[in-house]
Amino acid sequence: METSASSHPQPTTALTIRPMEERDVPELLRLMHGIVSFERGQDFNLTEAELVRRGFGERPEFGAYVADAGGNALAGMAVHYEIPFMHTLRPLLMMKWLYVDPQWRGRRVGQELVRQMARHARATGHERFYWFVLNDNAAAQSFYRGVGAMEDPEWRRWIMPAESVCRLTEEME
């Protein structure tokens, strides 16, 4: 995971795992930037305004559980969303990101966030939930195995890169 230190001091109080609130948006944005940087993401376009627009309101596009460290600081997050239509006639629960601030790693924060995701899955009628892990992220793979997860033996993620999208659409014209 990311190795740079956060500018937030370590509070002495216990963490609280809870659903995100609008006041968490600046810290969520910081954590999201942290995981996207770790994943070697190039185009980080999220803003506080976009997170508010997409995460709150009548039809939120995503939700998150946060590890509240007190003092407006978050120690970690588990961001999730649903794919609403599946052949099973049940939505698919996806965990988009699980990220723990480097200074909080090794303190069971990730385990508590995954446990909360499991509670969320059961409470919302999902038998399971899914996520992606970078092929070279051995630490995350080990962590996930340790909480009882397993690789999906039937699926591999594929991508249609931008240049191929352009080529295919140009061929059709």
Rank of each mutant, 00 (worst) to 15 (best):
R157A: 10
R119C: 03
Q103W: 07
P19S: 12
T47I: 09
A118M: 04
S37H: 07
H80C: 05
E154H: 06
D136M: 03
A139E: 05
Q116D: 07
A73E: 08
M32Q: 06
E27M: 15
A67V: 08
G76N: 08
N72K: 15
E58Q: 12
K96V: 05
F56G: 02
G106H: 07
R40G: 06
Y99M: 05
S7R: 13
L74K: 05
R145H: 13
M95N: 07
T169Q: 00
C166R: 13
N72S: 15
W97Q: 12
M77E: 08
F56T: 03
S7Q: 14
L168E: 13
I17P: 04
T124Q: 09
F38A: 11
V66E: 01
Q42E: 06
M95L: 11
M32A: 01
G70E: 12
G146L: 04
N45P: 00
P19V: 08
A5V: 14
H8M: 14
G55W: 01
H80E: 00
C166G: 04
L113T: 04
T12C: 10
L92N: 11
S164V: 11
E48K: 14
L113P: 02
C166Y: 03
T124Y: 03
R145P: 03
L113R: 02
E22H: 10
E170W: 00
A75Y: 04
G55Q: 03
G41F: 10
Q10V: 15
D152H: 08
H87T: 12
K96H: 13
G71T: 13
A121M: 02
M172N: 00
L134K: 13
S37L: 08
G70S: 14
F129R: 06
G57H: 04
K96I: 01
V52C: 09
T16C: 13
G63F: 05
R40Q: 14
A139D: 11
Q10I: 15
A67N: 07
A67D: 04
T13I: 14
T88K: 11
L46R: 02
V52T: 13
G125R: 11
E61H: 12
M32T: 02
V114K: 03
A139Q: 05
L168S: 11
Q116Y: 06
F38Y: 15
G63W: 09
A67T: 07
Q141D: 01
N137W: 00
T47R: 07
G146A: 01
H87N: 12
S164E: 14
A67I: 05
L93P: 01
G106N: 06
L168P: 05
F129Y: 14
E171V: 01
T13C: 15
G125K: 09
T16V: 15
H126K: 10
P26Y: 12
Y65H: 13
V133E: 01
M95P: 03
E61I: 02
T3G: 10
A78P: 00
E112Q: 15
L92Y: 14
E22W: 06
R53N: 09
I35Q: 11
V79W: 01
D68V: 05
E21L: 15
A78Y: 01
G148M: 04
V100G: 07
G106P: 06
R115K: 12
P153Y: 11
P153C: 08
D136N: 11
T3E: 14
